[in-house]
Amino acid sequence: MDKNQLTILINLAGMDGEVDESERRLIMRIAHAHGLSEEDVAQIFELENHVIDFDELSDDQRFDTLHHLVQLMKVDGKIFDEEISYCMAMAKKLGYPLEAVMDLYSQVHANVKLKSEIQKIKKKYHGKG
């Protein structure tokens, strides 16, 4: 995971004007799973107007970012129009159609990990990111 991916997630978390604790915890879990420290994450939270270079992201990073966006959008149990719009805009920039977001949306649940289903979706869109 790089700063671009983390910035995309942090921007989504702040769409409703505040970063909910459940959103912050999920971002930290994702960052830790990718070897980033709390200090790394704190620095990115503090960045303003960080320009995201989508060209630096591999196909796997693009899909993982889209998956994490959908997961983050749903984690606090409240989904706002701004979050949906941002998620859709990021999907497009990541090279994915609306259908990919909807496929992920139907399989991502707060505390349930459906890895096999997520992998099926990843394979379906492999090379489109």
Rank of each mutant, 00 (worst) to 15 (best):
9 L>F: 13
70 V>N: 01
11 N>K: 15
93 K>V: 04
3 K>T: 07
1 M>P: 01
90 M>Y: 12
108 V>R: 01
113 K>R: 09
60 D>H: 05
18 E>G: 00
43 Q>T: 03
62 R>P: 02
24 R>L: 04
118 I>N: 03
30 I>P: 08
16 D>T: 04
101 V>N: 09
24 R>V: 00
38 E>Y: 15
19 V>A: 10
63 F>Y: 02
119 Q>C: 10
51 V>F: 13
22 S>G: 00
24 R>H: 08
68 H>D: 09
17 G>L: 09
72 L>N: 05
57 L>P: 04
19 V>Y: 06
55 D>E: 15
43 Q>S: 10
95 G>K: 15
10 I>E: 08
107 Q>S: 08
116 S>N: 13
116 S>R: 13
96 Y>W: 13
27 I>A: 09
127 G>K: 15
80 F>K: 09
62 R>E: 01
11 N>H: 15
108 V>E: 03
120 K>W: 09
42 A>Y: 08
92 K>G: 09
113 K>D: 11
40 D>T: 13
128 K>V: 10
57 L>E: 05
16 D>K: 01
88 M>D: 06
117 E>L: 04
13 A>T: 11
125 Y>M: 11
13 A>H: 11
101 V>T: 09
59 D>E: 06
28 M>H: 11
54 F>R: 00
43 Q>F: 12
125 Y>T: 13
17 G>A: 05
66 L>Q: 02
10 I>D: 07
20 D>I: 01
47 L>R: 12
48 E>P: 00
125 Y>N: 13
91 A>P: 10
77 G>D: 11
61 Q>S: 04
103 D>I: 14
103 D>M: 15
51 V>Y: 14
50 H>M: 11
43 Q>A: 11
116 S>W: 12
58 S>P: 00
35 G>P: 01
19 V>L: 10
68 H>K: 13
117 E>P: 00
89 A>K: 13
106 S>D: 14
57 L>F: 02
48 E>T: 05
26 L>I: 00
91 A>R: 04
108 V>P: 00
101 V>Q: 10
15 M>T: 14
67 H>R: 11
101 V>I: 08
24 R>T: 04
73 M>I: 10
87 C>E: 07
49 N>C: 01
123 K>C: 07
94 L>N: 06
59 D>T: 06
23 E>C: 04
75 V>L: 14
97 P>Y: 06
78 K>R: 15
8 I>E: 07
73 M>N: 04
68 H>V: 06
66 L>M: 05
42 A>L: 06
5 Q>R: 02
10 I>H: 08
59 D>W: 03
69 L>H: 03
89 A>W: 05
98 L>R: 08
113 K>P: 01
117 E>C: 02
79 I>R: 15
94 L>W: 04
118 I>P: 01
99 E>M: 15
21 E>R: 00
